[in-house]
Amino acid sequence: MRLKRKDLLGIEDLTRDELELILSTAASFKEVSEREIKKVPTLRGKTVINLFYEPSTRTRTSFEIAAKRMSADAVNISVSTSSVVKGETLRDTARNLEAMRPDCIVVRHASSGTPHMLAGFVGCSVVNAGDGAHEHPSQALLDMLTVKEKKGTLAGLKIAIVGDIAHSRVARSNIYGFTKMGSEVTVAGPPTMLPAGIEKLGCKVTSNVEDALKGTDVIMMLRIQMERQSESFFPTVREYSRVYGLDETKLKRAKDDVIILHPGPINRGVEISSEVADGPYSLILDQVTNGVAVRMAIFYLLLGTAKEEQQIQAGKV
């Protein structure tokens, strides 16, 4: 069994079998991080470039540690401007990077679709580390792994995703991922933050958080960006927090053994109250641990195969 693809750009185009393969491989990799010598030689001699156009210490560090635990060489490149500002096309950027002969480029970009475009320009693997409001596949995979560990299965679970759905790549990737694995996903947020046609992604949609939380197994709280306030997506933080924030009272509507996920970093007291964030239902730290394992699995499955084959695949792009 192997992942027959050059790139990991999103959850939308993965099959359930592929998701299961990545999750089971990731579960195996957790053991490596618990050893005294946290390193396996599997990807020795491979080069991974972490190309981050958006600052993100957490995700970048997680990818870097994952690459290093696999013995790959990880190089971080932080870019603060878009190609337009630099006066360079994305094709130029891609060709320049490729000339350094990396085996994988991990891209984070504020513009949706940039990893997709880069992947079309280069022969090496491209992993999407979050693009605009599009997808954040490794985040969704670590969320799925975390839930699967706690609940044993994803099939039949009720998942509520609450907050700014419109601007959230984490929401989109998780909607695709959990629904493919047989969970029932409900998204909830202010009508201003529910994007057009979101229900066509296979989830239920509501603006009533209480309804969304009723009988739910998993609650995923999305981070709210404060600048949305000035764009009138919501009137005040106070009102947002009162209506959509997760506190002990709202939490009572969920199942007793509910678990809470958050892609972090948390705005304490805004989308989630401190008591809930620090409470027993919160798996926020498990998510971080699982993040490394998931990313090791992604590297293993994309880079640990025959080169020749990869080149053939690359030629097709």
């Binding site: 939308e12 605009g132 599009h134 994007p195 057009a196 046609g197 066509k200």
Partner: peptide, 13 residues
């Protein structure tokens, strides 16, 4: 265009 395609692509509509 605003619609499900934009939502799927994560582009503002």
């Amino acid at each position: 265009n605003e619609g499900v395609v934009a939502t799927r692509l994560g582009l503002k509509g």
